[in-house]
Structure formats: structure tokens, C-alpha cells
Nucleic acid binder design. Structure first.
Length: 200
DNA sequence: CGTACGATCTGCT
DNA sequence: GCAGATCGTACGA
């Protein structure tokens, strides 16, 4: 059920980002477990990707966790108020990461709704990376958390997803990345399958 | 030390 | 559809 360390060590971050669609993201804070099915991801391909925080080998206090071996969390603050949750992948010293942009609530919806306050879940999916973190209780201090531990982890559903149900497109909010903004590094579940999942 | 701005979200028009 | 919120981080002086 729980994805183990080897899952995160592959050096093809785009492939992992695609594979994460349909996996379940769990959190366990304050004695409460919540979970959501991942429906949207974006890959950030280390030092060669202008959209990545590690572009050109940039390495600062904030981004140093990206150089850790895959399987830990990278959470950072965006626009001064949103904690964005990323999954670090690849071998040590390869700063690849995957941003989780949307989930479908799967477990602990009561707590999720409390955390989201006024902005409740619409059409069954929590869209927007800031809202995903808010819903699951993930904060900047969770940077570095081991994703095979008991605070944040990922699991398999056992549901098989047809490759045709994964839509690939360009990433959002990275105009500064110039030509790399055109890379097909964003993945989401097709509307059709999202509807099916909504039923379950 | 100063400053510009972001892997965004919400509420108002 | 658009502007405002809101502040840590990065980078240059």
C-alpha cells in the first residue's frame, strides 16, 4: 500500500509525475488522518529546467532539500501566504521535484472541510496547490519530512488508470521560464475519470 | 541592508 | 475578469 523509498529514486521526474496521478496522498497531524487522490501534478526537472528553483544548480537554504535523495517533502511559501507541497525525487544531488496541484478528497473529509474554512470543495476536487496543502494541514515546517514515515506518505489505490485518461499540458504560472514554459510537464486526470472517481 | 517579486487564491465587479 | 493580499527568499549593493 505505502509507496517505499525505491519509488522516488528514479531519475525521470516527468515519468514519476505522470505515475503519481491516481496515487493517494496521506497526512497524519494532530492525531487525525486525511487523504486525497492525486489528480494533478507538475514536474520540475532539476538544474536544466528554467522553471525549477534549482535551475542552473542554484542551491540555497530554501532549496537545499531538493538535492536530497528522493522521497522527502519540499514545502515552500509562495506569494507570502501559500505553502506549496512538492515531492523530491531522484538520486542524491539531483534536485528534481514534483508539485501536487490538485487532489480528490478520499479520507477525513470532515477535517479537510474544517481546514478549508469558507473555501469548500467544489465539483469534488480540491484544485490549486495552496489549497491542497491547506486541506491536508501541510506547512512550510514540513520540508524535509520523510515520505515513508508516519506524518506524510503516499499509497496505491489499486485502481488501474488508462494512459488515455491522463492529460498532458504545459505548466502554470511560470512565464519567467521562457521556452521551458512550453514543456509538457503538467499532468491531470481526464474529466471523464475524475467524474467516475467522484462517484466512489 | 534594501528591494522586487513569486510553481497563488479570493472576493468583488 | 481583475486587483489586492502579504512576506520569505534571493540577489545585488
Amino acid at each position: 500500500m505505502k509507496l517505499d523509498h525505491s519509488y522516488y529514486l528514479g531519475n525521470n521526474v516527468v515519468k514519476i509525475a505522470r505515475n503519481l496521478i491516481g496515487k493517494i496522498l496521506f497526512t497524519h497531524f494532530e492525531d487525525v488522518t486525511c487523504a486525497g487522490i492525486i489528480t494533478e501534478t507538475e514536474a520540475y526537472a532539476g538544474i536544466r529546467d528554467k522553471a525549477s528553483h534549482a535551475y542552473g544548480g542554484r542551491r540555497t537554504a530554501r532549496t537545499s532539500i531538493m538535492y536530497h535523495q528522493g522521497g522527502v517533502a519540499y514545502v515552500y511559501l509562495c506569494y507570502g501566504m501559500h505553502a506549496l507541497f512538492n515531492i523530491v525525487t531522484g538520486p542524491s544531488e539531483v534536485p528534481d521535484a514534483i508539485l501536487i496541484r490538485a487532489i480528490k478528497p478520499f479520507y477525513g473529509e470532515d477535517k479537510i472541510n474544517v481546514r478549508l474554512e469558507k473555501s469548500q470543495v467544489k465539483h469534488g476536487i480540491i484544485e490549486g496547490p495552496g489549497r491542497v496543502s491547506k486541506a491536508l494541514g501541510i506547512k512550510v515546517i514540513h520540508t524535509g519530512v520523510d515520505l515513508t514515515g508516519n506524518m506524510i506518505w503516499l499509497g496505491n489505490t489499486g485502481i488501474n488508470i488508462d494512459p488515455q485518461d491522463i492529460i498532458c499540458s504545459t505548466r502554470i504560472g511560470i512565464a519567467y521560464a521562457e521556452e521551458d514554459a512550453q514543456l509538457p510537464y503538467r499532468f491531470n486526470l481526464s474529466k471523464r475519470l475524475a467524474e467516475v472517481l467522484k462517484e466512489s
